[in-house]
């Protein structure tokens, strides 16, 4: 129990961000029109690709003789990039169509 409280105390700033972001996420999405549900889901999908940074850190911090970490780190980077690039590109393609007809 003590160590849980200790952990929370050490990460208080992060927990603030966490709590505020939850409310922010709800507020940002609340009034979205149904037309935009799909692009919005797709855009949000791309944003959680930020997990890629974890992969970059793993691979960047791996010692050059640690093949296990290098291999998995490389895999994580490729997977994360797929999420980011694929996500943003698909969203852009969807939204491009919305734009065309507005002229």
């Amino acid at each position: 129990m003590e160590s849980i409280i200790e952990y929370l105390g050490e990460h208080m700033a992060m927990i603030y961000i966490l709590a505020l972001s939850i409310f922010l996420g709800v507020e940002v999405i609340k009034n979205v029109p149904a037309i935009l549900h799909t692009p919005l889901m797709s855009g949000a999908n791309a944003i959680h690709g930020v997990v890629l940074i974890g992969g970059i850190i793993i691979l960047g911090q791996a010692s050059s003789d640690d093949y296990f970490t290098m291999a998995l780190g490389f895999l994580a980077v490729v997977l994360g990039t797929l999420n980011v690039v694929g996500g943003f590109a698909v969203t852009d393609r969807m939204l491009e169509m919305f734009k065309k007809k507005q002229k």
């Binding site: 992060m14 961000i17 972001s21 940002v28 889901m41 949000a44 997990v51 974890g54």
Partner: peptide, 21 residues
């Protein structure tokens, strides 16, 4: 895990927005 604010905000924003969606 990495004390990384970009990962935290990006992730949790999608977590909560995705739940509402």
């Amino acid at each position: 895990l990495y004390d990384n604010q970009a990962m935290l905000t990006g992730g949790i924003l999608v977590g909560s927005a995705g739940t509402i969606l």
